[in-house]
């Protein structure tokens, strides 16, 4: 059960107010007309699906209805950080290893 901080509402709310929306930071191809089939497949279907640090989108579905990003551990389920759309994560798999946390 998650207790999630919505960066737009500025409050912690229960998990049932939110919906997970999959891997974050997937850029829509800038020039879709020139994409190969492989590039389209990669954009649409192929995911990192890491065991450990994962950057993902959530939407505050029954709250402000805004999308935001979350860095979360997919094994411990610990929420490591929450940040707005357009921002970059401070915590990554690499930074966690260097920091000696995991």
């Amino acid at each position: 059960m998650f207790y999630i901080y919505c960066p737009y509402c500025g409050e912690h709310r229960e998990e049932s107010e939110f919906r997970p929306k999959g891997q974050a930071h997937i850029m829509r191809p800038k020039d879709p007309e020139s994409c190969s089939d492989e590039e389209w497949a990669d954009y649409l279907f192929f995911r990192d699906n890491p065991k450990g640090v994962h950057h993902e989108m959530w939407v505050h579905a029954t709250g402000c209805r805004k999308f935001f990003n979350m860095t979360r551990d997919t094994v411990s389920y610990e929420i490591l950080e929450v940040y707005k759309m357009g921002e970059q994560p401070k915590i990554t798999a690499a930074s966690r290893v260097v920091g000696g946390e995991k």
């Binding site: 059960m1 998990e15 049932s16 999959g22 699906n49 997919t74 094994v75 389920y77």
Partner: peptide, 13 residues
Amino acid sequence: DGYNGYGQRGSYP
């Protein structure tokens, strides 16, 4: 459960 997880457990909702 809608989120990615490897923890062999999910949420109460």
